Computed example of a mutant assay.
Amino acid sequence: MKTIRLAIAGLFLLVASATQAQVSINVNIGTPPSWGPAGYAEMEYYYLPDIEAYYDVRASQFIYFGDGRWVRTTYLPRQYRNYDLYGGYKVVLNDYHGRTPYAYFDRHRARYYKGYHGTPQRCYQPRPVAYGYNDRHDNRRDYKHYDKKRYDKHDRDDRHDDDHDHDDHRGHGRR
């Protein structure tokens, strides 16, 4: 009886963990990036004309030409690390389904030249707030009234007044 209960519990745990793993895989594959253009139900690739590169939505990889070949990476190459993905224009390639969108690179480059801007785009999510200076939340303060000399002077005056108060209290306590 114990072995049957253990077998059922083990089977239950196995099914639960397999179901949980399947859900996480389905959720992560093919999710458009936050900087991707909103309003497209099915898309596999973006072409980024400003940097002449592609983005594979399903694999979450950039595809660019480097060192004489097409390279797939999760990050942009060093020369484009400061490229603004939120502000740059993205061409959604709805007409291509395969693994090598760069097979049509000459056509894409001619049609969507550097600086190309078609219809206005809106990203899936707003640009994240960068750490550091932000116009809306300027945490810098005007510390002029905390001038060290004035502060030290006030600090000394307060100590001086306190000394007199203590002397006065001591003197009154003795009478």
Rank of each mutant, 00 (worst) to 15 (best):
W35N: 05
E44V: 01
L14H: 09
V15I: 13
N26L: 02
G30C: 00
V23I: 12
A18S: 08
Q20E: 06
E44Y: 10
M43K: 13
V15P: 15
A41D: 14
P37W: 00
N28R: 12
P33S: 04
T31N: 13
N26W: 07
T19Q: 07
S24F: 15
G30I: 01
M43R: 15
S17P: 00
S17I: 03
Y40H: 11
A18Y: 14
A16E: 04
A38N: 00
P32A: 09
E42H: 14
A18N: 07
G36M: 00
Y40I: 06
S24D: 13
W35Y: 11
A38W: 02
L14A: 10
A16N: 05
G36D: 00
P33L: 02
G39R: 00
I29H: 10
G30L: 01
P32N: 06
E42Q: 13
N26I: 01
S34R: 07
T31Y: 12
A18F: 14
G36C: 04
G39A: 06
Y40C: 02
E42D: 15
P32K: 03
W35M: 07
A38C: 01
Q22W: 15
P37D: 01
P32S: 07
G36V: 03
N28M: 10
E42A: 11
A18C: 08
G36P: 01
A18L: 11
V27R: 11
G39M: 03
Q20W: 15
A18T: 08
G36W: 00
L14Y: 15
V23R: 08
N26K: 05
Y40K: 04
E42R: 12
V15E: 05
Y40R: 05
A21V: 03
N26S: 07
S34I: 10
G36K: 01
Q22R: 12
A16D: 04
A18G: 07
S34V: 13
N28I: 03
V15S: 08
Q20K: 10
Q20V: 03
I25Y: 14
G30F: 01
G36I: 04
P37V: 00
S17M: 06
P37K: 03
V27Q: 13
Q22N: 13
G30N: 06
I29D: 06
P33Q: 02
P32V: 07
S17E: 04
A41L: 05
L14M: 11
A21T: 06
P32F: 07
G39S: 03
N28S: 15
N28W: 07
A41W: 03
A18H: 08
P32W: 04
P33A: 06
A16W: 09
S17Y: 10
V23K: 09
E42M: 05
G30V: 00
A16G: 09
S34H: 03
W35L: 07
E42T: 13
P32M: 03
L14C: 09
A41F: 10
E44H: 13
M43E: 14
A21P: 02
Q22L: 12
N26H: 11
S24T: 12
L14I: 07
A16L: 11
T19A: 10
Q22I: 05
N26T: 07
Y40N: 07
I29W: 08
A41G: 10
I29N: 09
E44D: 15
E44S: 13
T31E: 12
P37Q: 01
N26D: 06
Q22K: 11
T31S: 14
S17Q: 04
I25W: 10
A18E: 08
L14W: 15
W35F: 14
I29V: 09
G30P: 00
G36E: 00
I29L: 05
N28L: 09
V15R: 05
P33I: 02
M43Y: 12
